[in-house]
């Protein structure tokens, strides 16, 4: 596909910059965790914000260069996924004043964008089925949804490892607060996952004529959805709060990751994806 070389190199530079900033951010959070240096935690947040802004620019540049929403292949989606986690993280850290959350979430952001950096970055023109506004909504919902679940995962790790964190422990909020953050993050993720599945169904209906056809991706997003639904119920009625809930949120996120990567790599050989 015809692309503007200037924009392409700008995009590459921005991508590398974001990648490096996320790495520095993760490193700063580790320093913060290991040394109790207050400045490291503060700096890490600002570095993450900088990385996030540059990342935003990169996504915009690629969108302009490709002439479409840049969320249609593994590279673009992995990058957007990292962006979504960063966004949710920035919001949750500010809202719940929980700097140490970065220790758990920043490496995750780096891992996801690192995964993106291993994918092909070529801009391909879209096959007609992918040229849909609904696909844009669908993927945007997935990004926020995955972001929410990613934050819940990070907080759950903090919860589970709470006693074993040495100096960091006193920076982790009390368990009740952690539990509340997990709930809020899962609720956000669940709402957006639901919207993601609904907009995806509308798109499938318009493109192929059936809104749900049990292909592995759809089926696994349903599995993920049910697992989080069970989580929400268990905590309401069975008082599944605290450590068990945190473990559940971790399992839920593994399911998210499997739906995202595993289905494509492990199951696609068995099923034709449409």
């Amino acid at each position: 596909m015809q692309t503007n070389p200037l924009l392409s190199s700008l995009e590459s530079v921005a991508f590398m910059a974001a990648l490096v900033l996320y790495l520095i951010c993760a490193a700063l959070y580790f320093i913060y965790a290991g040394t109790r240096k207050e400045w490291a935690g503060k700096a890490a947040w600002w570095v993450l914000l900088a990385g996030f802004l540059i990342h935003t620019v990169r996504i915009a540049v690629r969108g302009i260069n490709a002439g479409r929403l840049p969320m249609t292949n593994q590279y673009e989606f992995a990058s957007a996924f990292a962006w979504g986690i960063a966004l949710c993280f920035l919001i949750f850290v500010k809202k719940f004043k929980f700097d140490a959350l970065g220790v758990f979430v920043a490496p995750l952001i780096f891992l996801v964008i690192g995964y993106a950096s291993m994918q092909s970055r070529e801009i391909h023109s879209l096959m007609p089925a992918l040229q849909s506004t609904w696909l844009g909504f669908h993927v945007s919902m997935a990004i926020i949804g995955y972001g929410g679940f990613g934050v819940a995962f990070g907080v759950s790790l903090a919860y589970v490892l709470r006693g074993k964190l040495g100096g960091l422990s006193h920076r982790v909020p009390e368990e009740k607060t952690l539990d509340l953050i997990i709930y809020r993050a899962v609720a956000l993720g669940f709402l957006f996952l639901t919207m993601c599945m609904i907009t995806g169904a509308i798109w499938a209906k318009r493109a192929w004529g059936s809104y749900w056809s049990w292909d592995p991706k759809e089926t696994w997003s349903l599995v993920t959805w049910i697992i989080y639904a069970i989580f929400l119920h268990l905590r309401l009625r069975r008082g599944l709060t605290g450590r068990k809930a945190a473990v559940f949120a971790i399992v839920g996120f593994l399911c998210v990751i499997f739906t995202y990567v595993g289905v494509n790599t492990l199951l696609s050989g068995l099923h034709s994806y449409r």
Binding site: T219, I226, L270
Partner: peptide
Amino acid sequence: SFILLGFIIAACVAGSVIPQ
């Protein structure tokens, strides 16, 4: 509900791993 949802999850896993 949990029992039913558990079986549904099992069905989904089977249905995505075993070619249909």
